[in-house]
Design a protein around this nucleic acid. Structure first.
Lengths: 232, 232, 232, 232
DNA sequence: TATGAATGAGAGTTCATTCAT
DNA sequence: AATGAATGAACTCTCATTCAT
């Protein structure tokens, strides 16, 4: 079984080699214009070989997303499991985690957000679809856990923590995509970090409990109806 | 000149006919799987005719987005120009406007958000690219104006209103896309409205001035640094 | 019938207008890349109208050739029929005639030579095919007549005058086409005239009767100026 | 490296297979009417495969011409380099060489002459364009060398040998194209050989030095048989 | 007679995928 | 396991031609 294991390791390494090549190619050419031939060349392999490791082009592309989702999960895991953090510090850590994920590879993150809301997702093999779904939902659960502990710790109003996690995720993805839009429109690089800080601050303040804790916001005289626990 | 006008009208009607057909086809088949042949058939035209009205497939698709952007602009225009609205009411009207846009055609809206952050955008003809850019930026300006008047009216902290508009737009787009993700993952229709209400409430509360007005949030003891006017 | 005639004249004028436009377009774009749409635009007509005057694209193109053939015929006719010319002067006139035809429109002449040796010719309507055939053969006959009178006048050896005419025509067409080749290869304009003079001189000398007349091969009393080393 | 070589050989063989098929197809259907699909079928390959060997349709067609140019070059090379030939014999060998080229494949030769004076030539890839240019010019150089040695050997007047080569080439190409014209007009096969003999005789006589050698214009001691009245 | 929008067959070309080696 | 030549379906797009007005 030592042999078995080594083979398994080598197989995984080759997969990663292809993924890395694919990433480079699509950064250069964009997703649609990148061909399997291009990727094979970049990976110094033949086109046929790619199909030994990935069922088809869509699955290769989706695997890029999978990789960044895995990274996201690990980072979130750390934030949730790290001991001795005050709830407010945990929020800070959450922000840093997603920013790291963004920096890890913005293009792939954009690709993930596209994939997650496109027909392509539905046409993947059930296994890969499940992987993406599970990792996505697990990430959301972790973020949910963070917000739940914030609520339980008295930091936030008693919003539905699941919905808070979704809002948080939506805000993040929307900002990343808009960042790209601005790059295209203005041909002008922009740094997400400051805006992300600000957005996060507003968001936390928006959900903070009045008169208490670091994200306090009060007293409630909201002209807009906010039901903290909308029925799903 | 009556003839000229009639021709112009007929041309525009034909364009719309094609756009409507394209919309139907890509709703059925998804963007990538829809062929020009399909669209021609749906529009009861020949493939060649499509090219009399749209330069190529990408431009036809982008024109769908253009249409919803135009609708968005008109709606935002009304919100900005409607007289006799209190700032808080204007915010409410803003929310309703974007929700109407969402309901106008969710799929096309998703398509717009994809387009705005994809390489396809860069390969459009300069004219179409400019149209999309201008409408997008003009929409942002209108939202900016709303937030600015909110700030000037003492409702909100003195954040940079441009950045607030971008955050607002990001949150909206992120939620729309995540809505689609959930639909795919859970095969379960979900209604954006409630979550949008909640998100909007949180956002307004997050940027509201303390002790004052309907979006008050206070006192400030924020553990997370929030610079209301980040340098761009 | 005055009306009939006027109509006929107008029809012919419109045909010429189209032919002129076609000539301009194909000079700009080359034969294959020129479209009927292009020609219609250049002629300030609609595409449909072209088909009222020409059966199809091939026939329009062939009509250009027809026009230059007609011009050639008229010029040759003059040479043949002009009275009071010595045979040697007639040869000189022949040379000038074809050079004028060349200058009339080199591109169309090239097109004629292509057409005359291509499948397109065979697919023309019988009428147009006959027109081209007749004009071509009539031109050849005129040249034949010139050589025949040269032979009868004792200038030339008793070659078959028909074959001489064909050789003459071949030499001319070959030179015109090679001229174009050189232009493409060397991107360098070249003036056919000198070479044509030289070629004509050699040809006449090659067929001249010895010891007699202006084209006698030897001793050298060449009536036609032959510069053995034209400056390139 | 043995493998490398074998691959290279196989690749070349496949190229030739396609060229041969293309030749057959366009002989049957004419150049314009022949489709890539037709050629693929004739070669018993798939359409896609053609594009592994030729960049596009024009380049495939131009490659046919390239092949005949290569053959021409080899033949001319032999004529120039063959030792122990008297200048007059070399002229005879030149005539035989080009006649062989003609017989090798008249249709492709016609195609070459069309190509060499058409816009298509200018739109080839630089490599292929250069190949054709180089082979053409090298052929001309070889012919030039032959005429130069004829001049130096006292056979010919001191014409510019380069221009003589061009005239010779023009005469040849013009005759080949006119031959095709006659075939089309008269639906009657004609044999170029006799006319070519005659033309060559006239040409040599036209440039021959008087009173001397085998091409002396007079008195008649022509080394090259010239039948003044070839039977049609 | 003139229009010009519409046609639609068909072209060249691409490229994800396969499979004999 | 790796290759890479070959596949061939499917695509977008062109443009000569038609015909209702």
């Amino acid at each position: 079984m030592g042999i078995q294991e080594r083979k398994e390791r080598e197989r995984e390494r080759r997969r990663q080699q292809i993924i890395v090549a694919a990433k480079r190619v699509f950064s250069k050419k964009g997703f649609n214009r990148a061909t399997m031939e291009d990727i094979a060349q970049e990976a110094e392999l033949s086109p046929g070989t790619l199909y030994l490791y990935f069922k088809n082009k869509d699955e290769l592309y989706a695997s890029l997303s999978l990789r960044i989702l895995q990274y996201l999960n690990i980072r979130l895991d750390h934030v949730v499991k790290e001991e001795g953090l005050a709830p407010a510090e945990r929020m800070q850590a959450l922000k840093e985690a997603i920013y790291d994920v963004y920096q890890f590879d913005p293009l792939i993150l954009i690709n993930l957000f596209h994939l997650q809301s496109s027909e392509t997702l539905e046409n993947l093999s059930p296994e890969l679809f499940d992987d993406i779904q599970n990792l996505t939902l697990r990430s959301l659960e972790r973020i949910t856990a963070l917000f739940r502990s914030g609520i339980e710790g008295g930091l936030f109003e008693t919003y539905n923590p699941e919905v808070l996690a979704e809002l948080f995720w939506s805000l993040f993805s929307g900002m990343v995509l808009w960042e790209e839009s601005k790059r295209i429109f203005e041909n002008d690089n922009y740094f997400l970090k400051d805006t992300l800080d600000m957005a996060f601050g507003i968001f936390l303040r928006g959900i903070g409990r009045p008169e208490e804790g670091p994200f306090a916001a009060s007293p409630h005289r909201l002209g807009v109806a906010v039901d903290p626990m909308p029925s799903k």
